[in-house]
Design a protein around this nucleic acid. Structure first.
Lengths: 250, 250
DNA sequence: CGGATTGTTGAGGATACTCAAGTTAGGTGG
DNA sequence: CCACCTAACTTGAGTATCCTCAACAATCCG
């Protein structure tokens, strides 16, 4: 969303001058909005395309836009001062993100990177308050977005506080399946490339431990792995592991 | 906020029929609101008092009210299905909480307990949407409340993912000092009774580990403990520990 | 003064991390 | 289309951190 001074990175380009209402009216974010209101909101948006690996915005950058993901998938990461990376969350189509204003920040707290080719709608951050005040339904919906994220964050905290790694990995995988699962032959497939490292950073463990756990699950027929691939064969058993009801497989 | 069927628990009682504007107009939640608007909002609120140890609401209860803490201090906890407790956060005066509607929930996700005598303002949950739509400034402020909480939750996740226990305890203690610190002779005192167990549940560790760490810090002159007491003598050293720049004391 | 809650400290052990050495898969360029 | 190179992943061995279990001490409250 920026024009970095270093110029090294190619920004996504606007590819639609007007955005059609039909593209977005089904999104929960725009629920209960009158067609004219929706048109007003869309008129102020620009659309951008990002190829795999490109950042929509980066941690620490001045937050110039807030964004809705139309198509694709993003991974939001944060890097600690010591250089350790954490995956904050996965952005799914329809999600609102980059709303630094709502967090009373002027910069982005994390980096959002396209893990598959992605298309976003972006608005200048300056009109955030205006838009909310002019479209109360939008404010309510945006708040629910934040609410879901808060609940998910608290769930992760609870898990990290009380559960051992194998259970946490089970919960992480199940959450991914809920957010980005697609029925496939013999199971539910995570619909975008996800590495063991990603899963580790979502769970608060190491790549090595995730690999060992998934290997064990694969031997037991619960999942099927692969390079940046994950197919869940038996979600129910995974649920049992997550609830600590199944003897660990390690 | 409920009248539990078991009848065992005494509910806080309304003690003011009308609430004066001056009590709340300084709160960030009500910033930038016109006096008449504020009066309108307050007219629909009721005030309640809770003695130490009493719950404002409990996890799983039907969420009938949303609440602002006027005076006192609350601890919000969640209990896992296995019975392990986690402290979600501490509610400080001026904080908005219990906004289940914003989380798209009909029940409270946690229990809020008064750790000192507390006074709250409460509104029926049914008017949440109305209030937001009629007072856009309130919507913006409420969203910022959620934003702060989201940032704090993500910070905790980052800490639990990447830091060892001693650093996490340091961060927890410093956060408490920021939220509820009061200048005292020779340091900053946490302004409400907090047990080692509480700190453990905020940090994602055990009472025992917290006790050991605080004992070590006390020997080094960084803090001063006591039963449900905590005085921070040397915040700067604690910052260094939190940033991993100081050799651990264990 | 006695009971209950809160906190201290030690010993032992398990979970999961670090370190290390590979293997496999995929993409790229010749 | 094959060879190569890198990124992703696997697996083993050793070990550190922190948890569990245990017994006891201190503080508060009625």
């Amino acid at each position: 969303m920026s024009r970095p001074a270093d110029g090294g990175r190619q920004e996504g380009k606007a590819y639609l001058s007007t955005i059609d209402r039909s593209l977005v009216q089904a999104l929960p974010l725009f629920a209960k909005m009158a067609p004219e209101a929706l048109d007003d909101v869309l008129r102020r948006a620009a659309s951008f395309r990002y190829p795999v690996g490109q950042a929509v915005f980066e941690q620490g950058q001045l937050a110039e836009h807030f964004v809705v993901l139309l198509h694709g998938r993003l991974r939001v990461t944060q890097v600690t001062p010591e250089g350790q990376q954490v995956v904050v969350r996965v952005v799914n189509p329809g999600d609102l993100f980059g709303i630094a204003k709502a967090l009373r920040r002027s910069d982005y707290p994390g980096t959002a990177t396209a893990v598959v080719e992605s298309i976003v709608l972006a608005w200048p951050m300056g009109i955030w308050s205006d838009l909310l005040e002019q479209h109360p339904a939008l404010a309510v919906n945006a708040m629910q977005t934040m609410g879901s994220r808060l609940l998910e964050a608290q769930q992760r905290i609870r898990e990290m506080s009380t559960e051992e790694v194998e259970r946490r990995v089970a919960h992480t995988v199940l959450r991914l399946a809920n957010q980005a699962g697609r029925k496939d032959t013999g199971g539910v497939r995570i619909d975008f490339p996800i590495s063991k490292q990603d899963i580790a950073e979502l769970t608060g463990t190491t790549l090595h431990t995730v690999s060992r756990i998934l290997s064990a699950w694969e031997s037991a027929g619960l999942v099927e792995g692969g390079r940046q691939k994950l197919l869940i064969r038996d979600p129910h058993q995974l649920l049992l592991i997550g609830d600590g009801l199944r003897p660990g497989l390690l």
